[in-house]
Write a protein that binds this DNA or RNA. Sequence first.
DNA 1: CTGTTAGCGCATTCAC
DNA 2: GTGAATGCGCTAACAG
Lengths: 343, 343
Amino acid sequence: MVQREGRAERRVATLSDVAQRAGVSLATASKALNGRSEVAPATRQRVIAAAEEISFTPNQLARSLVENRTRTVGLLTSDLEGRFVLPILIGAEDAFGAGRVDVFLCDARGDAVRERHHLNALLERRVDGIIVVGRQTDPRPSLGHELPVPVVYVYAPSDDPSDLSLTPDNRAGGRLSVEHLIACGRSRIAYISGDRSYVAARDRVEGALGALDDAGLELVGEVMYSEWSEHWGRDAAAMLLTKHPEIDGIVCGSDQIARGAIDTLRDLRRAVPDDVVVIGFDNWEILATNSRPALTTIDANMQELGRTAAQRIFEAIDGEVTEQGIHYQPVRLVIRGSTIERR
Amino acid sequence: MVQREGRAERRVATLSDVAQRAGVSLATASKALNGRSEVAPATRQRVIAAAEEISFTPNQLARSLVENRTRTVGLLTSDLEGRFVLPILIGAEDAFGAGRVDVFLCDARGDAVRERHHLNALLERRVDGIIVVGRQTDPRPSLGHELPVPVVYVYAPSDDPSDLSLTPDNRAGGRLSVEHLIACGRSRIAYISGDRSYVAARDRVEGALGALDDAGLELVGEVMYSEWSEHWGRDAAAMLLTKHPEIDGIVCGSDQIARGAIDTLRDLRRAVPDDVVVIGFDNWEILATNSRPALTTIDANMQELGRTAAQRIFEAIDGEVTEQGIHYQPVRLVIRGSTIERR
DNA sequence: CTGTTAGCGCATTCAC
DNA sequence: GTGAATGCGCTAACAG
């Protein structure tokens, strides 16, 4: 920073500088540095040395301009908290290869105007593809098909079936939860869900009820819907245990709810997992690992989602036929102390 | 995506296309679209219309190449969780103006090699500036002064005093905590800190002890150091109350610790805030708002930090004299139910 | 193997 | 007011 005073920037080295210094032509310098084969080893060495001496940093802008690709993708999100977007970003970076591809992260903050703005900015910067990340699994408006770059929707699927969307398989998650509780020897299972207006809430419930049905079991009481909060988890668990003291397992729609439920069980002196087992959803580490006992939960594999999204973007860039529709990605059971006694 | 099959991309409109369609020269089209004054109003209208008709999207790459600035900044982080980096990103976007400037987010994952990689990628993409975000307030290695762009370090300051660093004023935060407890009428105050190896832990303690001293009070017991976890908060609180049942206020080094402490107080049937008040640090919403009662805490104003960082980057770009050293930014007390009875 | 030439899309002189 | 020409830094034909 120090040397930038008064706009008197020292001009940054250019490929011509390298060529001149190595005593070759611009084209040769380019080939040498880009590892093209049509260059004599000795020449290449000279060029590389020259480049290093003046710490040449290739200008990707110029390169992108002529190659007509930027090795850059846009991540357009409305997930303020970053609970989903960050694992997805990491997965995408992984798939792209760190440093080879960079990611523009734009937060639309749930505002359609701002989203339009950012989308435009991304297009002006000629990103090679766009990953759209929502914060719920409810369908979101498509960006449309007029875009000159491939788009993949992650977590929140597009409402247009001809777009490609990747979203966690909440039904399978719900099913997995119940199957795990049954495997733990439970049969009097209740369900505390979140906000019924969320597709995620309903899907998870659906999966759970299906698994119960398959096992010839019935849910204890009704599915309890309200909000995605610890408070609701506490209140719901209290109501539940008053009305159905016989329950031995609680499936929760989220980790927050599960934490609340565990809290209440503790207050009521019901042992977890001996007396009642509890399972959450999301594997939100900060919540799941700090509860007493730690929370068994379902992980949506967001990082994997990001990786897959990146691959799909790549395929589309490379001109492969692009897939369509909503793809439900596998989720994963993470077992902790709330369903199995640790030793 | 649909129309991209087989690499047969419909060529995206260029400025020449616009010019041709409007029946003017390329130069005139450029001037018209960029709001330069040397253009007849009627001509400008025609050009703008033409641009819209073919949905012209200016190529920022080309523009950046000639203007020698990209309106892009890099955000280089090692904060996996995004607890700090996201508010900072939002603040920066705010200051830059959404869409005008875009942000490359790179996650080095605490790995120096990967950081070097990403740094290089950012420089090749000719970002106008770089914001480096660490995940602790301990000093981190400087990126050096050889960089052709301004750099601002946020949260984790640079170990080089001639760099510009912005970090929250943890001392002031510690002081604020104690002053608030005293204002709540407490005088038998204990301190549960986190990991002593963190500068943040020590700074917060220092501020707290200073405030106690100024008030003529003494800490009850010793400052308790261990780890930044809810478990430690629970354990420490239990020890504390056994040894010093008279305490009426607990200052915690983080919200996690505070939640643990509140948990224990609840188990021990000590009322919060009536009997004992508790204050945390970080204002980590998910933790602070879901505890019973909700947590009074210190907010480090990360968003504000991001905004300031962006401004400093701007100033440096515009050639203003760049500041140096570590700047401690004000923090903010957020009062909730753990120190004051809600009605 | 190496060098010359021609753009990539745009902003900017400087004539007209 | 407008347009022809120049160049930003680089890659990709081509010709030697």
